[in-house]
Design a protein around this nucleic acid. Structure first.
Length: 418
DNA sequence: TCTGGGGTCCTAGGACCC
DNA sequence: TCTGGGGTCCTAGGACCC
């Protein structure tokens, strides 16, 4: 009997911060988005105080945060990524089949006969992850991924573990489960379903006209319906290489000069090309964009364009050059730019990459790139990079409340005094 | 004052081919 | 007073996810 578990971390970003701040146990904690613009993660204590509205502008709640003594952190993605990897490694001790679905959750395949105690399995996973990492997780177990998602949501009310295996267990759970809360059903799909008087997951499961579902919700909706019926449509998948990758940021202030945009895009190109090399891939084209602040009154401009490389590349020098060429096309003086970014497209594994016989310079400077990657791995990200990225980077995102890189930089290692 | 960043999948429709 | 039919590939846009 194969079952699927969804394991997800509770208030992941906040929990990462709390690992290194035991004084914050049971205290309200909030983590902010880039630029410290909005609150994006909350502990249950913070939610109880009325925080928890996704993307609430931070300046609006700053006074209330102080008043309630809420701990505030800027987002520290280097820390969260590292904690995530550690959690996933513990999961792999429990099953060879683990699909990392996002930074804070994973699907895990469990095999067991009729006598297997799935509940105990879930409790064990929870205890181990907390013991080894200090991360609290919820575990939902059922027959399919969609049902495991439902089960996981219900686990919050069942001390962190929920098992839905028999038809009675499943239907009882689906009866009170709003269809909008199903994985894959967004606001659009939910409102379409309400036309057919489908409000709960059970009504969706039992809705007989599959062709109608296909027509309005496409194949995606049809498969969700099947998964509710216990039919596996969405199999567990091994981690695959990214098909697109990119890097973009809001700037700390409105940027007017092309020189600053050149620096920023060079930095984004540096970050994205490192991701590409880490998965041993190359890309065939690059897209760059810059745009003004859509929330500000006044004239708006959105500039975007792409270019193709003559051959597949992951060379940071070529990718920066590409970003700058696109910038030359899209830059319009006079605007205050709030955000910029780049995307790398048409990604293929490096060993499947075809060379262009007629292009003048097709060879990546592989030696240079690998030495740079090696140094940055050993001494920390950004130890060596192109001068095109600039030195001061005044445009950079604001991070006023950032914690240290406890697990990824030697200089930030936590010291404990006894 | 501020309003994130990084992805995936599906479909329709245009371009192109024979 | 008609101007094929069938197929593939690519892209833009929509929807959704965390």
């Amino acid at each position: 009997m194969k079952m699927v578990a969804l394991v997800d971390c509770n208030s992941f970003y906040c929990s990462c911060e709390k690992i290194f701040r035991p004084d914050l146990r049971n205290k309200p904690v909030v983590v902010l988005s880039n630029n410290d613009g909005a609150a994006i993660a909350f502990t249950k204590e913070a939610k109880a105080l009325g925080f928890g509205q996704m993307c609430e502008a931070f300046f609006k709640v700053r006074d209330r945060v102080k008043q309630h003594n809420v701990a505030v952190f800027s987002s520290n993605y280097a820390l969260y990524d590292d904690i995530s990897k550690r959690v996933m490694n513990v999961l792999r001790e429990f099953s060879p089949k683990v699909e990392v679905y996002s930074v804070d959750e994973a699907f895990v395949e469990i095999e067991g006969d009729e006598n297997f105690d799935f509940e105990a399995w879930g409790r064990n996973v929870r205890a181990e992850i907390f013991r080894k990492i200090g991360m609290p997780v919820g575990v939902g177990i059922s027959k399919t991924k969609v049902l495991a998602k439902v089960s996981n949501k219900l686990s919050k009310k069942h001390n962190g573990v929920c098992v839905l295996i028999t038809d009675e267990q499943i239907d009882r759970a689906l009866k009170d489960f709003p269809v909008r809360d199903l994985w894959g059903v967004g606001a659009r799909s939910a409102s379409k379903l309400s036309i057919f008087s489908i409000k709960t997951a059970l009504e969706f499961k039992r809705f007989p006209d599959e062709k109608l579902i296909q027509k309005h919700l496409t194949k995606v909706g049809r498969e969700i319906q099947d998964e509710l019926r216990g039919i596996n449509c969405l199999s567990l998948e091994a981690a695959e290489d990214k098909k697109n990758t990119g890097n973009s940021r809001s700037f700390g202030y409105d940027v007017y000069t092309k020189q600053e945009l050149r620096e920023a895009l060079a930095q984004f190109a540096t970050n994205a090309s490192a991701k590409l090399r880490a998965q041993k891939s190359v890309c065939y084209s690059i897209t760059a964009f810059i745009h003004t602040n859509p929330f500000k009154p006044g004239p708006q401009y959105y500039g975007v364009d792409s270019l193709r490389f003559s051959s597949g590349t992951s060379d940071v020098v070529k990718i920066i050059k590409g970003a700058h060429e696109v910038l030359d096309q899209i830059y319009r003086p006079g605007y205050g730019y709030k955000k910029g970014g780049i995307l790398l497209n048409h990604i293929v594994p490096r060993n499947e990459c075809q060379m262009d016989l007629f292009a003048p310079d097709t060879s990546d400077n592989e030696h240079l790139n690998s030495v740079v990657d090696m140094i940055n791995k050993k001494y920390g990200p950004q130890t060596v990079k192109s001068g095109a990225c600039g030195i001061n980077q005044a445009w950079k995102t604001i991070h006023a409340y950032k914690s240290r890189h406890f697990t990824t930089e030697w200089k930030d290692l936590l010291t404990v005094e006894l």
